[in-house]
Nucleic acid binder design. Structure first.
Length: 649
DNA sequence: ATAGGGTTAG
């Protein structure tokens, strides 16, 4: 009769446990299951071992006491095995003490089991003491300790220990490399990833599937995507993990199209996916704002009965909100049987980017009432920026001071200070924001000066704007957007001479601007427009429509904001350049390609320009269309000529 | 006995 889990309650329990542990997927569970069954087919040879294989730890400990110094290696082995499975630190210590009494010098493998036990129980200090005091070590003892450091983010300790191990003459194996590569922060550490890579090559582990995926992931995390791809292409065999690692590498570096393309390619080549693969794919789809694709993934995940892992649900919340569909985000959030701080953060960020300050505050309140989840620095960031985007300045300032007084359990970081500048700036308290920057304990970054500059544009504060602008041009001279905003400020107060000198400065600094692009999703296809685009097949039609719109909009009172153009050309040329902005092209295309009354959803990779924002407002008013525009900062929901951002962004 | 990929923010 074939064995089944129900015949072995202790195994069924263990498997249950492993299933709930997200670090394992089906294949490793299966491996464990088969290994346990084979263990059972050759029955244990003592009463103590039978108790252990049934998971009856307390009874086995009693047996240990009865046997006294007659205990054998196998008995300790079985006991420690159970302690590791059940993560029992105290009981493990008892076995440890007993073992010391029995043997003058226990065998290496038993000492190594103790290291494993202590690391799994999060007692790294005990594990390290064990390692240091062992008279004899083997590669497993070293690796278990290195792995414990790596997995908990103690990169320096892990790398130090690796160096110590190499000095002692021990050769790393595939396990050592797979784990230590996850601790290589970049070429700035005292051991670089490249050094370890060369060691990997020398040891002939480069095409090992675990080592290889760890290696490619390390390169991806350092931003060296080409090297990562190189390692991936050299792997003799691919599996879920290596495929997911390279896809998520592209996604995390913002190469969203690349990630999607590679996913499709690997899928057609027979790649298996699991929930991690889909979570990474969803990150890419969030960036692309590809709602239809995202829904497909959701449907697929639902149908294929992939267990509802929190991580995957979190990505779905994020995907829906970044695609502009907060209702689905919330539905996903509400349906979750358990939530982590990331689930809350993703939802808060969603409301925040849509400018829904009330909802942000309500959700934050529920979060604080919920047991078992603590706000972290991202939570506060989301709440503060939510208050700013949602026009709840005073609430936001209260929360900041609450945090600064230590009432929230999160230390203020530079980004939080940035949010305060935003809050004050939006409220028109520009002088106060400027003073705040000067009293901050941290050196202001480009983002902070940029935030102050933005406030000065909206509240027409030329003096502070000039100050902030010049600070900003010093820290971040390559960003063309900064010159444009400073130019906006000068232009609004008629200081044309200064407008010219800003333009001059921009030319001198040879600014390389990230090319602006906007896109719109129609019938599951993304239509992308670049500034002054000539590549889209319906580009002529779009441009003709723009000219027609311009006439209509001007009659309604639209005046092109020429200070958004910093090229030295005449006014007619400037108007033409403005019409070539990618978001206007995408918006106009949306207007002609979708039926009347349907909302137009446009996405842009940079911050939306003042003139385009104004253009969209007139479109929404004249054509009675809702325009939803996501820029790299937030959503603008434009309805009947007014925008949810309150013209502050 | 020891191992690799993941979600929010920037």
């Amino acid at each position: 009769m074939p064995a089944s889990a129900s015949q072995f309650p202790c195994i069924a329990r263990k498997i249950n446990l492993i299933f709930r542990c997200p670090r394992h997927d089906f294949s490793s569970t299966l491996k464990l299951f088969t290994c346990k069954l084979s263990h059972l087919s050759s029955p244990p040879n003592s009463h103590l071992e039978i108790l252990c294989s049934n998971g009856q730890l307390q009874e086995a400990l009693l047996e240990m006491a009865l046997q006294g110094l007659q205990m054998k290696f196998q008995g300790y082995d079985a006991l420690l095995n159970v302690c590791v499975y059940q993560r029992r630190f105290r009981e493990g210590q008892r076995v440890h003490l007993h073992m010391i009494k029995t043997f003058y010098s226990p065998p290496v493998y038993l000492n190594t089991r103790l290291i494993v036990l202590y690391t799994k129980c999060d007692c790294l200090g005990d594990a390290r003491r064990m390692l240091d005091e062992m008279s004899e070590r083997n590669i497993v003892s070293w690796t278990a300790m290195i792995s414990a450091y790596s997995q908990r983010g103690y990169a320096t300790e892990a790398l130090n220990l690796l160096v110590e191990m190499l000095r002692s003459g021990e050769k790393p194996n595939e396990f050592t490399f797979a784990t230590v590569l996850t601790s290589c922060p970049g070429d700035f550490g005292f051991v670089s990833g490249r050094q370890i890579h060369s060691l990997v090559i020398k040891s002939n582990y480069e095409s090992h599937i675990y080592v290889g995926s760890s290696l490619l992931d390390m390169y991806a995390k350092q931003g060296k995507i080409h090297e990562a791809r190189g390692v991936f292409e050299c792997l003799p065999r691919r599996d879920v993990v290596s495929c997911t690692a390279i896809i998520s590498g592209y996604a995390q570096l913002g190469f969203d199209e690349k990630a999607l393309e590679l996913f499709r390619q690997l899928l057609s080549e027979g790649m298996h996916s699991n929930y991690v693969t889909y979570a990474s794919l969803l990150t890419a789809l969030s960036g692309l704002a590809a709602l239809d694709h995202g829904k497909q993934v959701h449907g697929h995940v639902f149908r294929s009965e992939i267990p509802s892992y929190v991580v995957l649900q979190n990505s779905l919340i994020d995907m829906y909100s970044k695609c502009g569909n907060l209702t689905y985000s919330r539905r996903t959030f509400d349906s979750m049987p358990e939530r982590t701080v990331i689930s809350w953060n993703a939802m808060l960020v969603g409301y925040s980017k849509h400018g829904m300050g009330r909802e942000v505050l309500d959700l934050f309140k529920s979060m604080r009432e919920e047991n078992g989840v603590k706000p972290d620095s991202v939570t506060i960031l989301a709440v503060l920026s939510g208050c700013s985007h949602g026009g709840m300045e005073n609430w936001g300032l209260d929360i900041f001071y609450d945090m600064a007084n230590g009432n929230i359990g999160v230390e203020p970081e530079i980004e939080h200070y940035g949010c305060v500048v935003d809050l004050l700036g939006r409220a028109g308290r520009v002088e106060e924001a400027f003073e705040f920057i000067q009293t901050m304990p941290i050196k202001p970054t480009a983002a902070i000066w940029g935030s102050l500059l933005g406030a000065c544009r909206v509240h027409a504060n030329v003096d502070i704007g000039e100050l902030a602008g010049h600070q900003l041009l010093q820290v971040e001279p390559e960003n063309a957007g900064n010159y444009v905003i400073l130019s906006n400020i000068y232009a609004s107060s008629g200081r044309w001479e200064d407008v010219r000198s800003v333009r001059q400065l921009m030319m001198e600094n040879a600014v390389k601007k990230e090319p602006g692009k906007s896109w719109i999703e129609l019938d599951q296809r993304l239509h992308t427009f670049h500034a002054s685009d000539r590549s889209h097949p319906r580009r002529e039609e779009v441009f003709a429509k723009e000219i027609e719109l311009l006439v209509k909009l001007k009659e309604a009172g639209y005046v092109p904001d020429l200070s958004c153009v910093l090229y030295d050309v005449d006014e007619e040329q400037k108007e033409k350049i403005l019409l070539g902005h990618s978001e206007k092209l995408a918006l106009t295309f949306g207007l002609i390609a979708t039926p009347e009354g349907v909302p137009i959803r446009v996405f842009k990779n940079l911050r939306i320009c003042v003139d385009c924002h104004n253009f969209a407002k007139f479109i929404s008013k004249i054509y009675g269309r809702e325009v939803s525009l996501r820029d790299n900062n937030r959503f603008h929901r434009i309805l009947g000529g007014t925008c949810s951002c309150g013209d502050y962004w």
